[in-house]
């Protein structure tokens, strides 16, 4: 009886969806299916083959993956990516959070400071990379500035030295990212309950205690999002490295994404490149799920 009833209800509910609505949904869904999910699945298949783009892909099983872990350049790229995620994430979160706390309360000049710091956000990563590449030139502004403040011995061929290339690119990326993280934290701080902060102040707590025990716990949601977004971004990072060093010199600034692009589009090792892409995906998926879980909670 209840089953029959619910079936009737369900049918009525389903009938309430008029047919144009299905068209509305199916066209975008088909576009995304065709341009995102279908290619994504294809990469998994290609990663099990050897293929140069001509003829049919030759199935080789898991050979690409075993090759990967014996590949020094791949291991270097993986290690660089870890450094990148920690450096890029850590520095931009620390800087962005500190600036957000400093610029949270309205006072004179805050607007100017905020705008100046998130202005680099509007530049593309490629343009940011080119800007800094000009500044990093051997006779460029950065070396001149170092000489000016008495650090002449620090002058350096920043992008040409394998020991510094990755970090030089990292500085440029953090310069651009800090403003974004700051904006996210400013929004998070706005969502904090000011009366809690006031109450703690009246109780005689220090500013640090108030931040650590009153504000920080309230930022948990923002922290989760920023953490997930930063790791996903680190794994995607491509443009700025490509614009500044193309992964060189001697693969010293190679990230997984640039190595994948090189293998796929320069050497046409399409199967091998797909395997690298699958590794990037495998590393990202956990953080994608974290973000999605958070997004679901927000929907409720």
């Amino acid at each position: 009886m209840t089953v029959a009833l619910s079936a009737v209800v369900r049918r009525r509910v389903r009938r309430r969806v008029p047919w144009p609505v299905w068209v509305f949904l199916l066209i975008p869904a088909a576009v995304e299916l065709g341009w995102v999910f279908w290619p994504g699945i294809n990469s998994f298949y290609l990663s099990l083959t050897k293929w140069n783009g001509l003829g049919a892909p030759l199935s080789v099983g898991t050979k690409n993956y075993t090759d990967l872990f014996a590949d020094d350049v791949f291991r270097q790229a993986l290690g660089n990516n870890v450094i990148w995620a920690i450096g890029f994430g850590g520095l931009s979160v620390a800087g962005g959070l500190a600036l957000a706390v400093a610029l949270n309360r309205p006072r004179r000049g805050v607007g100017i400071y905020r705008s100046a710091i998130y202005l680099p956000m509007v530049f593309s990563l490629a343009v940011t990379g080119l800007f800094w590449r000009v500044l990093y030139q051997p006779d460029g502004t950065i070396n001149a500035a170092l000489g000016l403040v008495g650090l002449k011995s620090w002058e350096h061929q920043w992008l040409a030295d394998p020991n510094t290339a990755l970090y030089a690119v990292l500085v440029a990326a953090v310069w651009r990212q800090v403003g974004y993280v700051m904006v996210l934290y400013l929004a998070g701080l706005k969502g904090c309950d000011p009366s809690l902060d006031d109450a703690a102040a009246v109780d005689g707590t220090t500013p640090w205690q108030r931040f650590r025990y009153v504000v920080w716990p309230q930022l948990r949601g923002v922290n989760t999002v920023i953490f997930a977004v930063t790791v996903i971004d680190s794994l995607r990072t491509f443009d700025i490295v490509w614009a500044m060093t193309q992964g060189g010199p001697y693969h010293s600034s190679e990230l997984l994404s640039t190595y994948m692009f090189e293998q796929g589009f320069t050497f046409l090792n399409l199967g091998y490149a797909s395997a690298i892409a699958v590794v990037i995906f495998a590393l990202a998926i956990l953080f994608i799920i974290t973000y999605l879980v958070r997004a679901t909670r927000q929907e409720d």
């Binding site: 994504g40 990469s43 995607r236 491509f238 399409l270 690298i276 892409a277 995906f281 990202a284 999605l292």
Partner: peptide, 16 residues
């Protein structure tokens, strides 16, 4: 659909 946007583009490049 949202998950599709979060995928690393690298996994789509060659098939696209």
């Amino acid at each position: 659909m949202l998950a599709g946007n979060l995928l690393p583009p690298q996994i789509l490049l060659i098939p696209v």
